[in-house]
Design a protein around this nucleic acid. Structure first.
Lengths: 328, 328
DNA sequence: CTGAAAGCGCTTACAG
DNA sequence: CTGAAAGCGCTTACAG
């Protein structure tokens, strides 16, 4: 297939290139007869418009860029799916990049994404870097930060309060009579916020600061190892909050294996409400977060803005909810 | 930020646009002094090349398009990650689209992806539709089909034999003395191939055909429901093969809940070797598939081909392995 | 080693 | 309702 260009379709239909272009983008502006003739030529020749050329000429790329910590199995793929579902009907396409949880590569990735002239940008997380904030703010396209909240978004932020989630877990565990706490999670912004909210609520209640266990890449095994380390260091811990469900499930299963009674001897709480959380016995108490909804809402905001809607709120708090099951 | 164009950078550096372009793409062709002057201008002005214009002029988009059943939590995201890891060093970007397991939307999605002039295309699955096969074949870019095998790929296929995997499970279960079999899974090509391989091996051994349970969207709950239906219909089933681990885990947990002894009363086998398969007790016997490696290899083939390497094999069988744990 | 000209394949803005 | 001209921001291919 030597690629068909718009001029060739036009020649076949006996019209000009602009008319073909109109039939494809705004058919109502063309008489039915012309339209039919052009459409027939398009179909016969298998013409597929070159979107690169269209983007360059129209200054509209039709691309939404999304930057995620990892394009792998994880709760973020639900957010990606939400964005995809929201923008697909509008004919927008998704350009995806992952920074592998490595903050250094963010600047480079962002520049490459921006070079592609996206009509909007979605990122998991809130950008702290001043220079990058300035660069993104100057882009004059919708820039949606997600999965956290901030009073000062670059443009718009869609998420929930990770600190409040941590506090809600602390209050729940305190109400259940727990007194010796631990927190296990990684070093990223969101886990840190959850840990801080958790610790602050505990401090307010006058109990000892939680033991902090650091985890590596998010996998079930990391949750298991964190549990082992925590119990080795402080055997009397009676409540453990994991930054995410994957870790919590690993910890819960390890308890089953070691014969540690949950929730009697130790309460376990996660965050994310993965499908599996409710399938285990005991079921995992967890913070349910609107992962899909965050993406969906981000996508909807983008579609609205691109079709000329005025900016809505700059801060969209989608909240979270504590789902109490048998593990606490 | 009013966008900076290459002409403006050139003016500031006192050179022509082509020289700026060279500094960015082939710096060794420019004298060190000129290079430094241009680079300084680029940095000072925060110039980011317009990749749409570059793509149009160079007829190289730098984009790899990937079509997946769903951009959600699933084993395919490992494949996406593999592709991403392999192509990122080469500066290629990933345009992703999902067809939500709905075959009708594939043609439309494919045309939009192709309109973006990708330098290569990866798809999960093997394309059967004749017209689409012809269209993709005529594209003159690498087209990699994955997750299955076929003697007649459009271009190159990277995967493993789903039928052989099903047969391997059957043989393992037969060797363990099982005699009354069931299979649970969806209607997609891969699940179907697994079911067929499983049934064929059973037929060869002279045992009764397996009971077939159909499942919906892949979730733990679907595995649980399939188990319930199977045992209601045929209480004497002693071996159950699920098309994927998510379903199998759901079934395994349901057995625990209902007090059905695994593997004594019923053996359960999955496919995928998700992290959680080894964390459960009993551990889940499963077929380990090279999900990440499939993507990685597809990406490597693309990178090699785009840099002028001759075609390697058109059929890359990455195999699978049976991981026997306690559930069978 | 550097640059002027032409062109990539569309759409915009203006006419008629 | 339809089209001729100009231009989107780069790179290719050729000169010098």
């Amino acid at each position: 297939m030597t690629k068909v260009r718009i001029e060739e379709v036009a020649a076949r239909a006996g019209v000009s290139a602009i008319t073909v272009s109109r039939v494809l983008r705004a058919p109502e502006k063309v008489t039915p007869e012309t339209r039919a003739r052009v459409q027939a030529a398009v179909d016969a020749m298998g013409y597929i418009p070159n979107l690169m050329a269209r983007s360059l000429a129209s200054r509209r790329s039709g691309i939404v860029a999304i930057l995620v910590p990892t394009v792998g199995n994880s709760i973020f793929s639900e957010t990606v799916r939400g964005v995809s579902d929201a923008i697909a009907p509008g004919g927008l396409q998704l350009l995806i990049a992952d920074f592998g949880y490595s903050d250094e590569s963010i600047a480079t990735l962002l520049r490459t994404l921006i070079g592609r002239q996206p009509d909007a940008l979605v990122m998991v997380g809130v950008m702290r870097d001043k220079a990058l904030r300035r660069m993104l703010g100057a882009l004059s396209i919708p820039v949606i930060e997600t999965w956290e909240l901030t009073e000062d978004p670059i443009d718009t932020v869609v998420g929930f309060s990770n600190a409040a989630a941590g506090a809600a877990v602390a209050e729940h565990l305190l109400a259940g009579g727990r007194r010796r706490f631990a927190f296990a999670g990684g070093r990223d912004q969101r886990a840190t916020a959850r840990a801080e909210g958790f610790a602050a609520a505990l401090a307010k209640a006058g109990v000892a600061a939680p033991l902090r266990a650091w985890t590596g890449p998010i996998r079930f095994a990391e949750g298991r190892l964190a549990l082992d380390r925590i119990l080795a260091e402080a055997p009397d811990i009676d409540a453990l909050f994991y930054a995410t469900d994957v870790l919590a499930v690993g910890g819960l299963l390890e308890c089953q294996r070691r014969g540690i009674a949950v929730p009697e001897r130790i309460a376990i709480v996660g965050l994310g409400d993965l499908d599996i959380a409710s399938e285990l016995s005991p079921g995992l108490t967890t913070i349910q977060v609107p992962a899909y909804e965050i993406g969906r809402r981000a996508g909807e905001i983008i579609v609205a803005r691109l079709s000329g809607a005025a900016d809505e709120e700059r801060l969209v708090d989608l909240g979270f909810s504590l789902v109490v099951r048998e593990s606490s």
